[in-house]
Design a protein around this nucleic acid. Structure first.
Ligand SMILES: [Mn+2]
Ligand SMILES: [Mn+2]
Ligand SMILES: [Zn+2]
Ligand SMILES: [Zn+2]
Lengths: 132, 132
DNA sequence: ACACTTATTTAGAATCATTATAAAGTAGTT
DNA sequence: AACTACTTTATAATGATTCTAAATAAGTGT
């Protein structure tokens, strides 16, 4: 299995639940955005056994810490995650609450001129809000 | 009172509570960022009477709808608001959880090249995450 | 000033995403 | 197999936010 090594190399035991969640998250043509509840539903659709919601939360946070997922900074009542962990930007459609990836070429390089003493930049993310 | 007309012109009755919240939010030299709980504390410090938490929520949302406040898209367990309603960007210090305004000149113009059919851009916000 | 209507405030309850708990199960190791 | 550390799970707890419905205040017309 291709995810067993990935998990082991991260210090995560390749449990049945984690491998199944890997399949739902990473066995796709395209990357995607999701909330925990959407992921829970997707898991229910794709697999027969049950994975507890606590495990889904635990796993998503473990994967986020290992850099396999990232959170998208957005104001919603639920946290959004992204399987696209490259540095990239987003459209956010306020009407449909849909997130759309922007290519870096759609935005162009962003040069932050101001420095904060003793701090370094971890990420630069642009959120473009859309209305009708 | 300078806030009475501002509220009336927005279709909001100038109640004692709203006027007092206006003083806490807008009678300052500099703009600032806050959560509801921080605002609640600030109100307790500055005024003698009590304003219920429900009223603080109601008022902040009313002011946001009228454009006197805006929400900052950030992942936190609490919603952050900003008394600076101009288009501007932020540093977010992951260690201290502090938000710092960036001047537009610190970032430079951002040109979004991609268009979404039937949608127009409402805002373009950059979040720069800082680590040690 | 008074009566009337509508907006606002309020305490408290409800909601709901997320996190914590602690017991049972599993993976890795010798 | 025995041992240990990690993981899963059901369930409870947490906590920010929203809802409810009754009391109060503001605006308007007389
Ligand atoms: Mn997290
Ligand atoms: Mn709001
Ligand atoms: Zn994305
Ligand atoms: Zn700001």
């Amino acid at each position: 299995m291709k995810y067993i090594d990935k998990l082991r190399n991260s210090g995560l035991r390749p449990t049945k639940q984690r491998l199944q969640i890997c399949e739902v998250l990473f066995d796709t043509e395209k990357t995607f955005h999701f909330t925990i509840n959407e992921l829970d539903q997707k898991i229910k659709d794709k697999i027969d056994n049950k994975i507890s919601l606590a495990t889904i939360y635990n796993t998503v946070h473990a994967f986020e810490k290992k850099g396999y997922l990232k959170q998208i900074p957005i104001n919603s009542n639920q946290t959004y995650f992204d399987t696209n962990v490259t540095d990239h930007h987003h459209f956010y459609d306020l009407k449909t609450e849909e997130l759309i990836d922007l290519e870096n070429s759609d935005v162009g390089p962003i040069n932050i001129k101001r420095k904060i003493n003793g701090k370094k930049i971890k990420s630069v993310e642009v959120l473009v809000k859309l209305e009708d």
